[in-house]
């Protein structure tokens, strides 16, 4: 009798220990995106996770630890398997003449193809400018740039469930510059196919 209860207690203790280890809520950094990724925990964001493959309990004040492949597989296999095809991004630099050059033509073909490969394509066309000129004016310039590309895509028979045409003006730079700086690489149209 006594022996049985001792075994039972031991078993319960072991279960609790294993369960405690496996049960806590945690976050792990799967890809640090070349040093740009990371996680901040705690009220002030003072607990940092910056290395791929490391995890940290969400509660408490624990430090980062390496998440084993087995743990990662057990916990996240299903969520990772449900990951949809990643969005495809195209960056166009429309010529000032408005006539598409051969590089632009090639990218337009690529966009049409990417949309055809998806069952419910959503296409976003976003115009961008450099920081030269006023912010409000640049938002309009970006929008006109985006509309011109959207027009070319429609003329070529783009079929999309949704087509959004937007402008980020000078607020989404490809190459970081100070204000009032001419930078041709920032004058662009980005097309996101998802």
């Amino acid at each position: 009798m006594k022996r049985l209860s001792l075994t039972k207690t031991l078993a319960l203790l072991m279960m609790a220990a294993l369960g405690g280890c496996a049960q806590h809520s945690y976050v792990m950094l799967a890809d640090d995106a070349n040093g740009n990724g990371g996680v901040m925990l705690g009220d002030e964001g003072q607990r940092l996770l910056e290395t791929s493959g490391e995890g940290m309990a969400i509660a408490g004040s624990g430090q980062p630890y390496v998440v084993s492949d087995m743990r990662r597989k057990t916990d996240f296999d299903r969520a990772l398997a449900a990951q949809p095809a990643l969005p495809e991004r195209f960056i166009l630099h429309p010529a000032s003449s408005g006539e598409p050059d051969s590089a632009t033509e090639q990218l337009l073909d690529g966009i049409l193809l990417a949309a055809r490969h998806r069952n419910y394509p959503v296409v976003t066309v976003i115009g961008h400018t450099d920081t030269l000129g006023h912010r409000a004016a640049n938002e309009q310039v970006g929008l006109r740039r985006a509309q011109a590309i959207a027009e070319l895509l429609r003329a070529r028979g783009l079929e999309a469930m949704e087509l959004h045409v937007e402008s980020h003006g000078e607020r989404n730079l490809l190459v970081a510059t100070p204000d009032a700086t001419a930078e041709p690489r920032n004058r662009r149209v980005e097309v996101l196919v998802r």
């Binding site: 809520s25 792990m28 890809d31 990724g37 901040m40 969400i58 990662r72 996240f76």
Partner: peptide, 16 residues
């Protein structure tokens, strides 16, 4: 159990 701020990259989270 708390807030997770995501600065970027790919992150996996498990909440029990």
């Amino acid at each position: 159990e708390g807030r997770v701020g995501v600065r970027g990259g790919q992150v996996l989270m498990k909440v029990t």
